[in-house]
Nucleic acid binder design. Structure first.
Lengths: 185, 185
DNA sequence: ACGTTATATGCACCTTGTTGCATAGTCAAA
DNA sequence: TTTGACTATGCAACAAGGTGCATATAACGT
């Protein structure tokens, strides 16, 4: 429900083309909301039809023309409404956990590999986020609201990947040492 | 992609009707994979068409008739294939974080309420999971594979909600004390 | 001349998930 | 006797997301 709103938030900062939005989603916004370029380009005409954004064609030299979108007052109002509307946490969907449940019944080997792979992915993200924390927030979370919000977004990613790495370690320890015959014991 | 497989895993334990599956998803499986009854009933004919499950009509006294589904050897094979196929972590999609990013630009008040609500939800889950941990795993994670997998699923939920509660506390502290004029300072 | 990378935009098809509605039998309580 | 709770199963419409494919300009290197 909130791809539209994530795009609006991005457009509040400054107007952008579809391509710009894709890149923003790949960078900052993408830490907490993934979207493919197909999805984004598909939403833009809808946002325009709802008059939440206005579009302007911009000719460029040396590059293809582009369409630059800006948020409208109606879009801004829609965003305010959405911000005020309480929404619960996203429902959890973890296929890794489905596999762990499967491991209980079907054997643990394939899942151990999978857990190792997940650990690696999360550890990489964690290292990246820790580096950003050192570089951008070595002096603390900052004083103004904007900086602190960026800091909190980063912290959210940090805590998330930290807890996953911890879990993977626990899981690898517990499942590796389990005697193979334990399921019939 | 893994609602089908989550259902198969559930059916490996024992055959079940659609209604049984719904209840299992609401209870144990639902800690890491949500599914509505509409979704589950929609998948069942597809699983049957793929011959991953077989169905049998069962007449009951005192209750409506039901269709009981059991996993087939082909279903079991499909499940093994899926377990062995590496899949990355689920993409992150956190509308709360989109709102926090919005708060940086549009004001913090609505989002503070939202964070408080999230904290409450996560704290409730956490309390529940801690209670289950005490009751079922007071003596530790257990010795056999099945128990340990249940334990790990629980741990995953625990760590997840713990990290959210921590984040909410950080966020409330940082955003409450931010001087309201800081965005123009 | 040829491939690669970056810019820039999209369509088509399919799967997955949500929302609202619909039906029907049994049982217990009010 | 009606109301509500539990069992049991679904359809229709829509929103959201994923996969694959398609196109075009222009800079840069080889």
């Amino acid at each position: 429900m909130s791809l539209k709103h994530a795009m609006l938030v991005s457009l509040v900062e400054r107007p952008a083309s579809g391509y710009d939005l894709v890149r923003r989603f790949d960078r900052s916004v993408g830490y907490f909301w993934r979207a493919s370029h197909q999805q984004i380009y598909r939403e833009l005409p809808k946002l325009e039809a709802a008059e939440w954004v206005s579009a302007e064609a911009v000719a460029q030299t040396g590059k293809p023309d582009k369409r630059v979108y800006a948020i409208t007052p109606q879009g801004r109002a829609a965003l305010d409404t959405w911000l005020a509307r309480p929404v619960g946490p996203e429902p959890v969907r973890e296929s890794l956990m489905v596999k762990v449940r499967g491991a209980a019944l079907l054997g643990v080997d394939a899942v151990l590999e999978e857990i190792k792979r997940h650990r690696e992915v999360h550890a990489d993200k964690l290292a990246l986020f820790r580096q950003i924390e050192r570089e951008d927030f070595g002096q603390g979370p900052g004083d103004d609201r904007k900086t602190r919000c960026r800091y909190l977004a980063l912290r959210s990613g940090l805590l998330y990947h930290e807890s996953w790495v911890s879990w993977c370690d626990e899981a690898l320890a517990l499942l590796s040492e389990t005697p193979p015959s334990s399921d019939v014991a």
